[in-house]
Design a protein around this nucleic acid. Structure first.
Lengths: 129, 129
DNA sequence: TATGCTTCCTGTAGCCACTACAGGTTCAAG
DNA sequence: CTTGAACCTGTAGTGGCTACAGGAAGCATA
């Protein structure tokens, strides 16, 4: 059994965030020691790691919570997990496409800049539309 | 001179957001009609359009404000504008790189899923680390 | 025993950039 | 005169933390 600081170190989730997850009902409230401090089991730390892994993959907290529940559930519903992963993948690809659009636009706009122009082509573009 | 609804339509910035920009000091407070309603000049609408264009390129509001000030300034400081565009480009590329990492990871994780597995490989991966 | 450092506690406010009301006034059309 | 649209102010909510303030308790050293 571990104090919150140790749970944080082991899971990679910050202390404040662990307490936040508890407040939000993402993880169950842990036991408390006689003096009122939180104590975490290895299993509880495993849940924090799981959430961290989900967040690292870009899943929202509510998706991460859902995945955690699927993970803890009786039988592993691989299909449901796949669907969530697939949706996450689609949304990631959508974001990439959008960012590439921005990248292209910014590349073009900055290209003609910075040549000691009297007139700034980028500002001109921003004024347009 | 135009009412806020018309300013919104012309600029593409929502009414609530226009008021928000005013509250935050991003744009100067417009004149008011006798009955207390906001009235916008073509120039003021131009500023809103400018901000919209900046936001569409991914600039933060404070960057957008800075660009607007550079745009309104006496002489056009093309160098400063270029530096901001370049920083925005760099941060956009960083985000793309990160999202591509997520895309690759999600692709791999979902690949072995959804085959009626007893054990879910994606959940296994999420439990690891 | 006294001290100082670290860890922990609760509770609240802030970040970004909006968005969504609630509850009211004013205006324009029929 | 009524109806509905457009406007007003002010406040609260979103996501996912992060950063305090202000205090209690434990641990190591002197």
């Amino acid at each position: 059994m571990f104090a919150i600081g140790e749970a944080s170190r082991q899971s990679g989730v910050s202390i404040e965030t662990i307490r936040y997850y508890e407040r939000e009902g993402i993880v169950p409230p842990p036991e408390r020691s006689a003096n009122g401090r939180r104590i975490y089991s290895a299993e509880a730390i495993g849940r924090l790691k799981f959430l961290k892994n989900c967040r690292n993959l870009g899943f929202s907290l509510s998706d991460a919570k859902a995945l955690l529940e699927l993970s803890v559930g009786e039988y592993s519903d691989c299909d449901a997990v796949f669907r969530m992963g697939d949706r996450q993948l689609a949304s990631t690809r959508k974001k990439i496409a959008e960012l590439r659009r921005l990248e292209a636009a910014l590349t073009e706009l900055t290209a003609n800049c910075s040549e000691g122009n009297t007139d700034c082509p980028m500002l001109d573009a921003l004024r347009g539309g």
